[in-house]
Structure formats: C-alpha cells, structure tokens
C-alpha cells in the first residue's frame, strides 16, 4: 500500500515549507537583534548615562534626560494603570462574572489591546495637551497608562479565572465577605500571574513611541517637571535616527541597545516567572 507519489510529494513539500517558514521567522529575529546589539554596543560610551542629549553636530553627550523621563513616565503609568487594570480584571472574573457589562467590557478590552497606539496619542493630545495648551510628561504618562490598562485587565481576568471555585467556596464557608475572599485568597493565589501581566505591560510601554509623539514630545534639556515637555528614550531614538548627523545616529543606536536589552530581559523574566507559577 504505497502512497502515490503525487500525494507523497505534496506531503514533503508542505513539510519543507513549514520548516522553511520557521527558519524565515527566526532569521529576522536574529538579524534584528544582532544589528541592534552590535551597532548599539559600538555606540555605548561612558557618558551615555551621565550627560544630556547634545545639540546637533556636537560630539559626545548622553541620554540621561531621556532615561530619566522614560523612567518617570513608565512609573507614573504603572501607578495609574495597574490598579485600574487589576480592578477591572477583578470585575470581569469575579464581581461582574456573567453580567452583560462584563462581556461587553471583555470584548472592548480586546480591541483596546490591539488598537493603534498612535490613536491613543491623538486622544490624549485632544484630552490633555490641547486644553492645557502645552505638551507635558503628564499627558505622556496617561497615554502609556492607557496602553498598559488593557494588558493588565486581560491577564488579571485570566489568572483569576484559573483559580478553582473550591478556593472561593472555602472562603465563603469561613464567613468571609466577598471582597475579603477576593483580596485575601484570590489575589494571593493569582499574585505571580498578575505580576507577570504587569511586567509584560511594562515591557510593552517601555518601547512605545507613537503615543508619546504628541503628548510628552521631547525635551533636549534636563527637566524634571511633569508639566512640561519631557525627554524620553523612544522619541529621542526616533528623532536622532531620522537626523542626518552621525553623532545623533550613534546615540540613537545606543538608546536602541538599552531599550532592546530592557525589553528582552523583561520578557525573559516574565517567562521564567510564568514557568515557576506553573510548576507549583
């Protein structure tokens, strides 16, 4: 019962194609990472973390103001977005389970998750920048918080749903009110999964550029004020990479290097955390 040669050929072709497709996907990953790390490592200088972004044509300088601005905005976005996301996720999985509102919000949340981030930038331009009359780090942090929110909502909902109902019932049997069951049993059981989701969100917003273009904008000088344009790594990379100046392009590569390393480390950390959660 030999398989006819045409069918066998189709089989082999399909499998060769699948293998080639995987190689195709991996090649880009390694090419992009290799490029970024090589060019970036070349451009690393001791002044990178010590000096401000230089004016065009001036050699040296660093990205200190940009690193600071990015860190502040990510932190603020985290403070705003993470609790809201956990609360909304709790509603979807627990307090509003099986309600119409929960199913609508769950649907909408998935759309926000993939919505173009440039639109989020425009939204906060209209909402914050225009009424205030100037670009600000605060508007940038809000835009980042909005990118973070749906990620945290989704992972919180998923991790709470994985907790067996017997845990909830055990809490109720002890006479605990629902909010204490959620807080003291469910959040504890789901902690590592929820933290994983938040870390994933941080990795995502660390590299977001489009929402910051019209909110935080950029600032060539040291500024700690959230009420003024705030330098940040992604927008500096974008401006410097598109510029015709060699020194600026070098700094852009250095910034890209740091950004890529941070994002990769966060992603690998998340996977390790997730694996540890599974083993237990």
């Amino acid at each position: 019962m030999a398989i006819p040669i045409r069918r066998r050929a189709a089989d082999i072709t399909a499998f060769a194609f699948a293998t080639a497709a995987t190689a195709f996907g991996l090649v880009w990953l390694f090419w992009i990472l290799w490029t970024t790390l090589m060019h970036g490592a070349e451009a690393l200088t001791p002044t990178l973390f010590k000096e401000m972004t230089p004016p065009p044509g001036v050699p040296g300088g660093g990205l200190l103001n940009a690193f600071y601005g990015s860190a502040v905005m990510i932190l603020l976005a985290l403070i705003i977005g993470a609790p809201l996301g956990v609360a909304a996720g709790t509603f979807l999985a627990e307090h509003g389970r099986n309600t119409r509102l929960a199913s609508v919000v769950s649907f909408v949340n998935d759309i926000l998750l993939s919505a173009p981030s440039i639109i989020v930038g425009l939204f906060f331009y209209e909402l914050v920048v225009r009424p205030m009359g100037h670009f600000s780090g605060f508007a940038g942090a809000l835009a980042l918080a909005m990118i973070l929110l749906p990620i945290v909502v989704r992972t919180t909902e998923e991790s709470l749903r994985l907790i067996p109902d017997t845990m909830r019932e055990a809490g109720f049997a002890l006479g605990l009110p629902r909010w204490r069951v959620t807080r003291q049993i469910l959040y504890k059981a789901g902690l590592s999964a929820i933290l994983t989701g938040i870390l994933l969100g941080v990795a995502r917003i660390a590299g977001e550029t489009a929402p910051l273009l019209f909110t935080a904008l950029n600032n060539q000088f040291w500024s700690a004020s959230l009420n003024a344009p705030l330098a940040n790594v992604p927008v500096v990379i974008w401006q410097f990479a598109m510029s015709p100046y060699d020194d600026w392009q070098k700094l852009a590569w250095a910034g890209a290097f740091v950004l890529t390393v941070v994002v990769l480390v966060l992603n690998i950390l998340v996977r390790l955390l997730a694996r540890k959660g599974k083993q237990r």
Partner: peptide, 24 residues
Amino acid sequence: PIAIAIELLAAIPSIIYGMWGLFL
C-alpha cells in the same frame, strides 16, 4: 524555545524595527 523566539518578534519595539528597516 522556538515558540518563545517567534513570540519575541512581537516583543521587539516597533521603533527598533524601524531603525533596522531604515539602516539595514
């Protein structure tokens, strides 16, 4: 490991894709 590597393609910030695209 291969699945993780493919997923990492989604983790790379789009600005990095842009720089790589422009310069390489």
